[in-house]
């Protein structure tokens, strides 16, 4: 199979790639922490998170710190699997070009 077809379209965006990478190595990451790590605006980040959530790749936990809402995200099993497949596909593509 052509490795390009194995690449997951959802991870096409740099921002979604960044979100998934940081969630894979951390148990959970809050919205604000993601915002700082990736360096994007609230609205932009929220829409990318929504896409990932709709695909079932991440879980959302809503909580409060005092009165402020504090939403944190963690990766689901499906998300982990999809991301690993995407990495494999990237690896294959690089190999095939060497």
């Amino acid at each position: 199979m052509n490795p390009i077809e194995q690449l997951n379209k959802v991870f096409d965006s740099r921002i979604r790639l960044g979100i998934m990478s940081s969630l894979l190595v951390n148990e959970k990451v809050s919205f604000n922490e993601l915002k700082e790590l990736i360096g994007v605006t609230d609205g932009n980040l929220a829409s990318h998170l929504k896409t990932l959530e709709d695909n079932g790749f991440l879980k959302v936990q809503k909580g409060f710190i005092g009165r402020k809402t504090n939403t944190s995200y963690s990766v689901t099993k499906a998300g982990e699997k999809a991301f690993k497949q995407h990495l494999d596909a990237l690896e294959k593509m690089i190999r095939s070009l060497q």
Binding site: L17, G18, S21, S22, L24, L87, L90, M93, L97
Partner: peptide, 21 residues
């Protein structure tokens, strides 16, 4: 395409480092 997948992998690595260390 080649440069793009290299770039993606580098980005992933950097983000993993940056967010965990």
């Amino acid at each position: 395409m080649e440069t793009s997948s290299f770039h993606d992998l580098r980005e992933i690595r950097q983000m993993m480092e940056k967010s965990s260390r």
